[in-house]
Amino acid sequence: MTTSCENIEIMSKLRSFLNNGDVGRFRFWFQLAAFVFFIYGGYLYIDLGNSLPTFSCPFNADGKPGVCYVYAIQHQFHIPWGQIISWRGLGILTGFLTFLAWLLVFNKAWCGYACPLGTVQDWITKLRQKMGIAYSTYSEGGFEKLKKVKYILLVLLLLIPLGMSNSLLGLPKFSSDLSVAFCKLCPSRTVLPVFTGDLSQFHIDFSTRTSMVMTTLGLIVTGGFFVGAFVKKRFFCFFCPMSALHYLCNKFAFLRLTKDGSKCTRCGDCYRACDVRIKAIADDVESTNIVKDDCMMCFKCVAACPEKGALEVKFLNVPLYTSTDEGFIKRQQKYSEEEKS
């Protein structure tokens, strides 16, 4: 009896320690560690395979500890129809299942905690804040349209390699210079290798017309990435086809973000904190699973919620981090004091 009482007491102490904690600070250090891992892990001969649900970029040739699934899937879909029912088709399937397995465990937290390109954007945001420059906002209608781009990119991502091996709708096969077309545009290719001293991706390939167009576009996108990230938080993520793929596992994943609408006052403090502007986090009082397609599971919303038990992070139904008024006040007052000193 006494031991169970003690256990309960220890558990409640642990809970309040966690709930009073600052997930933002934890995340900052976690992201830094993940960044080091995904940029330099390869030098330690780490190889996690080629189904990683995050931008572990193959163009960072020596440093990558595994390969981004978006890169892999473009290669795998470069397949003639006839070979789909074969060992190659099986490869696609196992690759996909591995990808799902990664996702199943950490859900969209790959974006908020692991993705090196996301981390770079967060650092750019920090830089903007240090300079005291205001972020810019979206108009609601425009934003809704913008968010759809990633699904279009996802479809193209799969169609282009198929169109390289097969004739789609009677069209001639696409040039093989379109190989990994998305990667040619993705800012990871240019930005991430820089951290291992490789600036070689900053060039225009004049060998063929297609290559020239793609590499030029890639450089333009890279420019847009920096400008975008500076004025808007996580700007690139709204276009990220990986983010669209992540949404597959949303309903089954072990790591979850849940909401108890009856406890929500719809004060909007969570929406203010949300870097990807998910309005439902504040307004939706019906859904329990509150992870939307743009969510990166950074859990800033939980930290910004002043209502006890309204938002909760769970792993396999075990609460890890719950919103509380006590924790909210502690964190907010700490931010205020940091400035005073």
Partner: peptide
């Protein structure tokens, strides 16, 4: 109800 600013600047 309490205020929660995400960035501690007037904007």
């Amino acid at each position: 109800d309490m205020v929660a600013a995400d960035e501690s600047y007037l904007y």
